Amino acid sequence: MRIPRIYHPEALEVGSEIALHDDAANHIRRVLRMAPGQHLELFDGTNLTFSAEIIQADKKNVRVKITAGRAGSRKSPLHLHLGQVMSRGEKMEFTIQKAVELGVNVITPLFSERCGVKLDADRLAKKIQQWQKIAIAACEQCGRNSVPEVRPAMALDAWCAEQDSGLKLNLHPRAEHSINTLPLPVERVRLLIGAEGGLSADEINMTAQHGFTDILLGPRILRTETTALTAITALQVRFGDLG
């Protein structure tokens, strides 16, 4: 049986005994049905992973003892900040999950003119919490030890105006540049992915004013969730740790 990987949001220390947080404890107790004496792998957002043994598992809590720690970074040399205009249904969840698996460091959900998602403040806050949990679960699955931040949603123009020393890229079907023609080396990328209906002409002009470079992925028109994952993969192949 594969040893489960569990995220713990507080600093871990070898020799200590801790109670797992509610979500992790419920997963261990109700889904995996693990018992005292069985082992876990924990990570706390640093470049360390920890071996742990379950010492208590009941209806109230799950307690573990940290038995060993070791360094093990799986962080890409490319720092990727994904600005994703929010998509409807499960598409946004899918994009976040796979972006984390592919090595994205920061994800900012965006509103644009053609954004089809309409949420009030309370529902949006709950969505952000849900998306952060999806990011954590993706890290547990894929072996990442650092959890990407899912930032609060913001307007597209405000996100584009943020200061960033990295390369700024916007996908455009009539762009002259491809990812393979971008000059080496690149250590930081701010990647903008538009809504299902794309960006408006005014928004495209706005991104250019903020220093974004239009790039082309290929001859076919891709759905927004396909576009994000294809672009991230191509960037990791060119500048990161894939391939």
Score class of each variant (00 low, 15 high):
4 P>M: 07
7 Y>H: 12
11 A>S: 12
12 L>Q: 09
17 E>Y: 03
18 I>V: 13
18 I>W: 11
18 I>D: 01
23 D>M: 13
25 A>Y: 07
25 A>M: 09
27 H>M: 12
30 R>D: 08
35 A>M: 13
35 A>Q: 14
36 P>T: 00
40 L>A: 08
41 E>K: 13
45 G>S: 03
49 T>D: 11
53 E>L: 04
56 Q>S: 14
56 Q>P: 08
60 K>I: 04
67 T>G: 09
68 A>E: 14
68 A>K: 13
70 R>L: 02
75 K>V: 09
85 V>K: 03
86 M>C: 09
88 R>I: 03
89 G>K: 14
91 K>C: 00
95 T>L: 07
99 A>R: 00
102 L>Q: 05
108 T>D: 05
117 V>G: 08
119 L>I: 01
120 D>C: 05
122 D>K: 14
123 R>D: 06
127 K>D: 06
133 K>R: 15
134 I>V: 15
137 A>F: 07
138 A>D: 09
138 A>T: 04
144 R>A: 02
147 V>F: 05
148 P>M: 08
148 P>V: 07
150 V>K: 04
151 R>P: 06
159 W>V: 06
159 W>S: 02
163 Q>T: 14
165 S>I: 11
166 G>D: 10
166 G>I: 02
168 K>G: 07
170 N>H: 01
171 L>M: 03
177 H>V: 10
177 H>S: 14
178 S>F: 00
180 N>V: 00
188 R>G: 11
188 R>Y: 04
191 L>A: 07
191 L>C: 04
196 E>D: 10
197 G>K: 04
197 G>R: 06
198 G>M: 09
200 S>P: 06
201 A>L: 12
213 T>K: 10
215 I>F: 01
217 L>P: 08
219 P>H: 04
221 I>V: 14
223 R>L: 01
224 T>W: 02
224 T>R: 10
225 E>P: 06
227 T>F: 06
227 T>Y: 07
227 T>V: 13
234 A>M: 15
235 L>C: 11
235 L>M: 06
236 Q>R: 05
238 R>A: 09
239 F>R: 06
240 G>P: 05
